[in-house]
Design a binder for these strands. Structure first.
Length: 607
DNA sequence: CTTAGGG
DNA sequence: CCCTAAG
């Protein structure tokens, strides 16, 4: 029944546990610790009791364990000094000390555990022993995650923080994030913090991926593990970890709800990191994930039946990853891809490769509620000005699917002039029956409407929630000249803004393409021009609103204002930039690529 | 193609 | 956001 899982991975043992709150369990009843490596999975029940994990949970955890994960805990109010260490002391040697602390605390754990109201729903493996001295204190990683704060930024603004209470919970974005351990609810929070909007999606896997992608700026997120540190996805291989088994020191996963405490700035700084590509990180593949995914999905599905469809956004992101080379060649701008609910559900299928137009593309299955959909990862979709020949369509071979899937694709770049503006939609239908004909793909303009009925609602609910919105609010406006202008409004999410700010701080204003390339790697939309424009707007905003009008200004939902701290940052950067237009060019360029190090330190904010 | 600016 | 001029 109970599975025994090995904990592998080297953790940098850090306990970021704050005193009282302490981890939920660090557990440790001595017995459990018998074998440092074998643990039993349990979860904390509503009333704080430990109960054996269910199979589903095991699955999840297992997945977790496969990779190393860590999470930085951030607790706002803890009485203990070290809870805050991350803030002040930070850096250096903390980790070790903390572990010992962690231990002692863990002793009380059981008792504590009961008290925890915790929203912990997840199982958490933990280790109390910090056995070896092997701490793998990884200089970089540890440092970073431990002290997300202490950014260079503090000086200037004094971080004044917590002024905004209606903010998304940014704290969750700090340091290392272990999405696997979060409950759906928490994932939602993280999601919100990341994308600036809420989501109703309940699929954990999806949420995790989504968040991972957002935070990582990459589409290439691991599918089995979701530990994000700074802007990188951290993943370890099994083998890898098994080797390191000894070094693990305790790890604590806990999800503590925290209130926004105004560390946004710090958060920013921590995020400003180099884009380190963790090459080792990737190796695994989707196959595994799918099983996992299915489990998760299945469960979810039962709970609430719903259907999700891959969104254009999703595809874009994925495609963006590899297809730098495809630049504009084949352009298909799937405006929207919808799927109609089907009566029967299928099981997820393993990812497969199919060859598309002579090229092999990797497709991954998007696990929708029951639909298996292959999403081509490669060709790049570019959203850009109306393209001359827009009609390149892809053919999907429903090969693996036993069911019918209908893709609705709304073309946007159609030159309305020729098509008649109303009919700019293409519907791509893939029927399992295989009898579909190519023609069906094209010109199915009106279909949209019919399907929309169904889809509209769904879109609002399911699609929109994507932080990025896969839905496009593309409104085409006929222009006098006979052209059609697409008005594509995609509101900027907080995370995007943050990335932008980060980018500017790193590369400086004016180097939009660079910023686009690095900081916005995963956002296929958002052109360098967009970045520029946004920056312009931010500047405007930052200089206009400082004197926070406290009045009844705060409307919570209607368009998030833009976190004050960010505005501050913007202003600082702006001034900075003004003074030194071309700071250190020499150092700027290459560093980004290879030389890690301190480059990311945002320049000192001397004002 | 990338920037800067204006609209 | 879009568009255009300019390098």
């Amino acid at each position: 029944m109970e599975k025994v899982v090995k904990v592998e991975g080297s953790e940098e043992g850090k306990f970021e546990v704050t005193g009282l709150e302490k981890s939920n369990f660090v557990l440790s009843s001595p017995k459990h610790v018998a074998d440092p490596v074998v643990y039993k999975l349990v979860r904390v029940d509503g009333n704080g009791r430990l109960v054996p994990a269910t199979d589903d949970e095991l699955m999840e955890v297992e997945g977790l364990l496969e990779n190393e994960k860590r999470e930085a805990l951030i607790v706002e109010d803890t009485g203990q000094a070290f809870g805050y260490t991350s803030n002040e002391a930070s850096s250096s040697g903390m980790p070790q000390l903390e572990s010992s602390e962690g231990l002692s605390q863990s002793e009380n754990t059981e008792a504590e555990t009961e008290k925890l109201s915790t929203q912990l729903e997840e199982t958490v493996p933990s280790r109390a022993q910090c056995s070896s001295d092997d701490h793998v204190t990884q200089p970089v990683s540890v440092g970073m995650c431990l002290k997300p704060l202490d950014g260079p930024i503090q000086g200037g603004a004094s971080t004044s923080a917590g002024c905004i209470s209606s903010q998304p919970d940014f704290s969750k974005l700090k340091g290392e994030i272990c999405l696997d351990n979060l409950s759906i609810k928490e994932l939602h929070e993280v999601f919100k913090a990341t994308f600036g909007r809420d989501t109703t999606v309940k699929d954990k896997l999806w949420l995790k991926r989504r968040i991972a992608m957002g935070l990582t700026n990459s589409c290439d997120v691991s599918t089995t593990t979701f530990v994000i540190k700074d802007n990188k996805l951290v993943k370890k291989d099994k083998e890898d970890s098994s080797d390191n088994v000894n070094l693990g020191t305790g790890k604590v996963y806990s999800a503590v709800a925290v209130e926004y405490n105004g560390d946004l700035l710090n958060n920013l700084s921590s995020q400003i990191d180099e884009h380190q590509t963790i090459s080792e990180a990737r190796s695994g593949n989707n196959v595994v994930e799918n099983n996992f995914a299915n489990e998760d999905l299945a469960a979810d599905q039962r709970a609430a039946k719903r259907v999700r469809k891959p969104t254009k956004r999703y595809i874009e992101e994925l495609s963006e990853a590899e297809s730098k080379e495809y630049s504009g060649r084949l352009i298909v701008s799937p405006k929207n891809i919808g799927i109609r609910p089907l009566p029967s559900n299928s099981h997820a299928r393993p990812a497969r490769n199919v060859s598309l137009e002579g090229r092999t593309v990797i497709t991954r299955l998007d696990s929708l509620g029951g639909f298996g959909i292959q999403v081509p990862c490669v060709y790049r979709v570019r959203r850009s000005r109306p393209r001359k020949n827009v009609t390149t369509l892809l053919k999907f071979h429903p090969s693996g699917m036993g069911m019918t899937a209908t893709f609705i694709k709304r073309g946007l770049d159609v030159h309305g002039s020729e098509m008649g503006n109303a009919s700019m939609n293409k519907v791509l239908e893939a029927k399992s029956t295989l009898e579909q004909t190519p023609q069906q793909f094209v010109a199915e303009s009106n279909k949209e409407k019919s399907s929309t009925d169904l889809g509209q609602n769904m879109e609002l609910k399911y699609v929109d929630p994507l932080g990025d919105t896969s839905d496009d609010n593309v409104v085409t406006v006929p222009t006098a000249k006979g052209g059609i202008r697409r008005k594509h409004h995609r509101s900027w999410t907080l995370s995007e803004v943050m990335k932008l700010v980060e980018g500017v701080s790193k590369y400086g204003t004016g180097r939009w393409s660079e910023i686009k390339k690095f900081a916005f790697a995963s956002y296929s939309y958002r052109t360098s021009v967009d970045l520029k424009d946004k920056w312009r707007n931010l500047l405007k905003a930052s200089f206009a609103q400082p004197p926070a009008d406290k009045g009844a200004n705060s409307r919570k939902h209607p368009s998030m204002p833009i976190p004050a701290p960010i505005l501050l940052r913007v202003r600082e950067l702006a001034e900075m930039q003004a003074q030194s237009p071309s700071p250190n060019l020499s150092a700027c360029k290459l560093p980004a690529c290879g030389g890690r190090g301190s480059v990311n330190e945002t320049r000192p904010e001397y004002l």
